[in-house]
Write a protein that binds this DNA or RNA. Structure first.
Length: 609
RNA sequence: GCGCGUGUAGCUCAAUUGGAUAGAGCAUCGGCCUUCGAAGCCGAGGGUUGGGGGUUCGAGUCCCUCCACGCGUGCCA
């Protein structure tokens, strides 16, 4: 028997439908779902309506025949036909108990994926000389969570931090700093950031761009951006090009200085990433500079295969299904980010051997990834070298908005840095924990300041991450710190709190008996058991759609279900020893699942709070 | 102009990808602490799913058409 309830029911019904319809059972989808309404049983099968129609049978008659024919073993207590042809199924308590015991292993019933190819995830997207801001928040934590999810299924994951560490922007910063004789060894990221902005301001002579954008009726966002860049000193730009040229020639001293900019940036970045509790370190750095010597070859390859052509001095790749071409080389011979991305996609599929490449990049770059993926498949990089088809996926996430529903800015109108955001969340979490610990009844009452700060940090960071991951990724969301760190409602702290209560309950109850038998007499016990059995399904669903909010919603439901159970079913105070052991075991299983689920979301589970 | 996306309760969001009476949480109102952590539990009110057509046993979900907002739109990343 499989630990996935749904799978077991599905297989039984596949055989049932197969025998009634005289069709190969493996082709049949009985569409088994968890029932929304408890009155309709534990699960329902919706397949009879469609299959009846396809085979010229009355769906209700078909459903009844299937119910009569299907051998559910000891799994099902009742299977009834309702409405236009729903099959409502209620499981036997014995089956629920037995599957729950099977889930009670160290992997919690999650079996490794059969696919042994690695997964590459493009995430974070740091730019050298630029401070992390809210925009990086999503690319980082969504990417890290997807990585953890794949790892939970035993997949090897390459977290690819595709640094913006090469090209004209960096050369401009470097040129500017060197020309002002600034000591690169004592530089702070703030200094760098200022230099970056100044360099951007002076070096971009983009009047033509504004005119073109006006003609094209570009959005206000883009226009503002272009106007900001206007101001044009061409000599600054040519000086920067000289620096870039020397860098590309391999000038030792210059490269040495360039490395200092990267080191300075990454020192600060890794401090933030560590606070964020994401598994991204120096080993994940593989930025634009890594691909710098491959770009010419990439363009050559497109030429060789006849997919590239010259147009107005630039090199473009054209696609049959749309007019918009992809530029892979500028008319001045320089390369673009598209070229680097092509080199990266080739590396990831052909050298790393990934059969899934996931790009966690904001939704505004949809068109770019369409082009990129189509170009990659023209070149045959949509298959690994051992012939496995590669899935290229862009996760287009929405923007983080302020209260005014515009991209989040500080009061003065500048970008909100990630550090300031995280610090505020940590402060709020810590304040709450501290104030709660003043209560003599609180388990945190006698804790040291350091311990309380640790918990405050776990809560604050967990709040931000949960708020981000718990809604549909493609949508923009309004950043509301107040709501995120609230301890009631669908928030990270609510789940952490529920988990802390279970932990302390178990601690108080002494040892959990591994051999205890689970007993389901009370409706709330059964409800909790059924919810726990969904874990496998939810994780598979989450990894299939790459939508963390599915896991979030389910975890919230699980903790709600537990709290409800806990309210009506005494655990430690129940008289009957076997019931006590059973409820303790249910609690322990819940705790382990919540901790595991939160860990996939990159959220810590404090024992007290 | 063209392309892409979004629109669900006062607010913030779900809806098992076409399934049964559209569900949660905040907020509001009403109950439950001398009993395992009340950061909790139980209950109530609140909806023309942006509008209008269509497809079918069944549509928030698919198709068409309007509307509103956002984003993108050839040498930035």
């Amino acid at each position: 028997m499989s630990t996935s309830v749904q799978q077991s029911i599905r297989e039984s019904l596949q055989r049932g439908f197969g025998s009634v319809l005289e069709l190969p059972w493996s082709d049949i989808d009985p569409i088994v779902r968890k029932s929304q309404n408890p009155e309709h049983g534990d699960f329902q099968a919706n397949g009879a309506m469609g299959l009846g129609k396809q085979n010229g049978l009355n769906p209700k008659v078909l459903a009844q025949k299937v119910v009569d024919e299907t051998d559910f073993g000891n799994l099902v207590e009742s299977a009834e036909v309702a409405g236009p042809g729903f099959i409502n199924i209620r499981l036997t308590d014995e089956a629920v108990v037995s599957m729950l015991h099977m889930m009670d292993t160290c992997d919690l019933g999650i079996k490794p994926d059969k696919d042994m190819h690695p997964v590459a995830i493009d995430l974070c997207g740091v730019n050298v000389a630029k401070q992390l801001h809210v925009g990086h928040l999503r690319a980082t934590i969504i990417g890290d969570t997807l990585a953890r999810l794949y790892e939970r299924f035993g997949r090897k994951v390459y977290r690819e931090n595709h640094l913006g560490d090469w090209g004209l922007p960096i050369a401009m910063v470097l040129e500017r700093l060197l020309s002002e004789n600034i000591n690169l060894d004592t530089l702070s990221l703030d200094d760098l950031n200022i230099a970056y902005k100044e360099a951007q301001l002076v070096a971009k002579d983009d009047v033509r761009g504004i005119r073109a954008a006006n003609n094209l009726l570009a959005g206000p966002h883009r226009l503002a951006e272009l106007e900001e860049q206007n101001g044009g000193a061409l000599d600054a730009q040519s000086a920067a090009k000289k620096v870039l040229n020397s860098l590309q020639q391999g000038d030792k001293e210059l490269l040495n200085n360039w490395q200092k900019l990267i080191d300075c940036t990454m020192r600060s970045v890794f401090t933030s990433l560590e606070l964020l509790n994401v598994k991204i370190g120096p080993e994940n750095n593989r930025g634009e500079s890594f691909y710098r010597d491959k770009l010419g070859g990439i363009v050559e390859e497109f030429f060789d295969k006849g997919f590239a052509e010259e147009d107005d001095g630039a090199i473009v790749v054209r696609f049959e299904k749309r007019n918009r071409p992809m530029l892979i080389r500028k008319s001045d011979g320089g390369f673009l980010y598209a070229t680097t991305d092509l080199a990266a996609i080739k590396f990831r599929t052909q050298e790393l051997g990934a059969d899934r490449v996931v790009y966690v990049v904001d939704a505004r770059q949809r068109d770019h990834f369409k082009d990129l993926f189509d170009a990659a498949s023209l070149m045959g990089w949509d298959k690994t070298t051992d012939g496995c088809p590669v899935e290229l996926v862009h996760i287009p996430f929405g923007s983080v908005l302020g209260e005014d529903k515009k991209p989040l800015k500080t009061r003065s109108g500048s970008n909100v840095t990630l550090d300031s955001l995280l610090q505020e969340a940590v402060d709020r979490g810590t304040t709450e924990v501290m104030s709660r610990s003043k209560n003599p009844k609180s388990p945190t009452h006698n804790m040291s300041k350091e311990e309380l700060e640790t918990i405050g940090r776990q809560i604050g960071i967990g709040a931000i991450k949960y708020a981000d991951l718990s809604n549909d990724l493609v949508r923009d969301y309004v950043f509301d710190m107040e709501r995120m760190v609230a301890f009631d409602g669908n928030t990270g702290p609510y789940i952490q709190y529920a988990c802390a209560r279970i932990t302390s309950l178990i601690k108080k109850g002494g040892v959990v008996d591994d051999d205890a038998i689970i007993i389901l007499h009370e409706p709330k016990e059964r409800e909790l058991a059924l919810q726990l059995l969904q874990y496998n399904n939810v994780l598979q669903d989450t990894v299939k759609h790459l939508e963390p909010h599915r896991l979030c919603t389910w975890l919230f439901e699980l903790t709600e279900t537990f709290n409800s159970f806990y309210q009506s079913c005494p655990v430690l105070k129940v008289e009957c020893e076997t019931v006590r052991a059973s409820r303790l075991k249910l609690s322990e299983l819940t705790r382990r699942v919540v901790v595991d689920g939160l860990d996939i979301l990159g959220i810590e589970s404090p024992n007290q709070m």
